[in-house]
Amino acid sequence: MRIEIDEISKQFGTTAALTPVSLAIPSGALVALLGPSGSGKTTLLRILGGLEFPTSGRVLFDGQDATGLTVQDRRAGFVFQSYALFRHMTVFDNIAYGLNARPRASRPPKAEVTRRVQKLLELIQLPDIGSRYPSQLSGGQRQRVALARALAIEPRMLLLDEPFGALDAKVRKELRQGLRDIHDETGLTTVFVTHDQEEAMELADLVVVMSMGRIEQIGKPADIRARPASQFVREFITA
C-alpha cells in the first residue's frame, strides 16, 4: 500500500512534535525514520497507525484520505518499542488476539486460528513456544512474537518503533536480517523508527532523516551518504 503524508503537523500543548512534514512512501518499500531522540519519529509513526491524530494535515493510503480512520480500521501491524506483549496471555493467545477480536462474521474458526498462529510461529522460527508466557522469553524472542502478532491481522502496512532498540548487538544483527526477510516475503509497506544510522542505512530502501520535528532529507542510503543535504545530516550519519 502506498502511503502519503501531506503537510502533517502535531502539537502537544506548547511542544511542536512535528512541524508540517510531507512524505510519500511507495508501495512495498522498507523505510527508516532516522533521527535523534525527540525528533518526532515516534509521533509520526503513531499518526500513521492511528494512535495519535495530527493537529493539521492529511494521511492518504493508496490515494484515499485516511486521516480520520480509527486505529482499528487502519489495519496497521504495529510493533511497539517495548513490544507490549499481553503479559497474562501465552504466546499463542498473543498472536491469536487480533483474529479473535474480529467481528463474529469475519472471525476464522478455531482450527483456522490455530493453523495460522502455527504458521506465523514457523515464520519467526520459534515453532515450539506457543504455550509460553512473555516473561519466559528472551528479548529477541519477544520481538519476534510481537512481529508475528502484528502480522496475524493480515495488515496493510507494518509499523515498528525502535524494533531492535532493546537488544544486544549480536541478536540485533540477526533480527535485522529477519525483518528484511519477512518484508521481502510479505511485500508489506514497512516503516521502522531508529536512532541508529548504521541500522537505517543497512536495512532500508529509503531513509528519512528527521530532526526537531522536521524532515531533513529523504533518500536512498547511498544518496544520503554521498550527498547529505545539510550540516545536521552530515554530522548525524558520520556520528
Partner: peptide
C-alpha cells in the same frame, strides 16, 4: 498504556 494500544491496533474495540 502500551498493551491497550497494542490491542487497539489489532482491531479490538
Amino acid at each position: 498504556r502500551a498493551e491497550e494500544e497494542a490491542a487497539l491496533t489489532l482491531g479490538a474495540s
